[in-house]
């Protein structure tokens, strides 16, 4: 009991993920800066920001629903942490694992987005409301492709357990190559999920100030930012567990290192993506997702199904 509480709160739970999230926020920011030929922030900047925000007053608008206003950030952070328990990090399996946990993880990762919507909606400010509506519009655009490409590898592996998939693909690393298209789609969808350029439409600062987060300040904003950091790491871990299943089962320090390198690779791709493009308009984003990303995801699904029907039989069951 005590051990599992420590697992949840300290390692590899809340505190570990929070620290890792902030380290990767720094990585993201320094990459963004260096790609732009700037110097970038010092390594402690995310921590300093967090402490500074934590020391400030929470201002809750009079018009806002104070309970929902306070609940939303906590909900977002909690959901992102819980999702991490089902993602295999460096051990053979995740902290908790059961058949079909891939679906649960995707749902849990949707909760932060929904809580952004709730936060914006219950702030009742104009900018927040527009941001909230944009958040939910965008959710419908990237969620379906993400869902499809996360589940597609499961067909070949014969399991919808993330740990099972990871183990299967680490045993048959060549089959990873069939998922390249899925990897690309997952990166695009993840960029949308994390609301980063070119899909930072819900918080586009030159249009709607800070979108959903316009009214947030102090500790609540700090928790929101932490939630986004954790979501980034969890999202990157999810993508790397499924599409880059190398070094699974190494365990110990080496496994941990491989895990962090894999996340860093995903983060690097995300940062380059963010640096090289302009923000799209919401209708351009939805068009793009349904015209190109969703068909690509369906194609990936077909590839997995056909492979599963013809050559997959030999492997099925390997992951259980």
């Amino acid at each position: 009991m005590a051990a599992s509480i420590i697992e949840m709160i300290v390692f590899p739970g809340f505190i570990f993920l929070g620290v890792l999230g902030m380290i990767f926020e720094y990585v993201d920011r320094i990459l963004y800066a260096r790609l732009q030929n700037r110097k970038g922030p010092p390594w402690f900047q995310p921590f300093a920001d967090f402490i500074k925000l934590g020391a400030k007053e929470d201002v809750i608008p009079r018009e806002a629903d104070s309970r929902m206003f306070k609940l939303a950030p906590i909900l977002a952070a909690a959901a992102a942490v819980v999702a991490s328990f089902y993602i295999p990090m460096w051990g053979g399996s995740a902290l908790h694992s059961f058949t079909g946990d891939a679906v649960v993880v995707i749902y849990l990762l949707t909760i932060p987005t929904v809580s952004f919507f709730l936060a914006g909606w219950y702030s009742t400010s104009l900018y927040s409301t527009v941001g909230a509506v944009r958040t939910i519009t965008q959710l419908f655009a990237y969620e379906v492709p993400l869902f499809l490409v996360i589940l597609a590898p499961g067909i070949l592996a014969g399991t919808w357990s993330l740990s099972g998939m990871a183990v299967f693909y680490s045993q048959h690393p060549l089959l990873c190559l069939t998922n390249v298209l899925g990897f690309v789609v997952a990166i695009v969808a993840l960029q949308g999920k994390l609301e980063r350029i070119p899909f930072d439409i819900p918080e586009a600062e030159t249009e709607i100030v800070a979108g959903t987060f316009t009214e947030y300040s102090g500790r609540l904003l700090a928790i929101f930012r932490l939630a986004i950091d954790i979501e980034t790491v969890v999202g990157a871990a999810l993508v790397s567990a499924i599409f880059l299943p190398f070094g699974i089962g190494l365990g110990g320090v080496l496994g941990c290192l491989v895990f962090i390198i894999k996340i860093a690779v995903v983060m690097f791709i995300l940062a380059v993506f963010k640096t090289s493009m302009a923000r799209l308009r919401i209708e351009q984003m939805v068009n793009f997702c349904w015209k190109y990303v969703a068909p690509a995801a369906v194609l990936q699904l077909f590839i997995s199904m056909i492979l599963g029907a013809f050559i997959g039989d030999a492997f099925i069951g390997g992951g259980e």
């Binding site: 790609l35 732009q36 030929n37 700037r38 350029i197 930072d200 030159t206 640096t275 302009a278 923000r279």
Partner: peptide
């Protein structure tokens, strides 16, 4: 203009 459409990279380069 680049900043207004969220293309901060072009902003940084052109101002450099």
């Amino acid at each position: 203009a680049a900043h207004e459409v969220g293309f901060d990279t072009l902003l940084m380069y052109s101002w450099r």
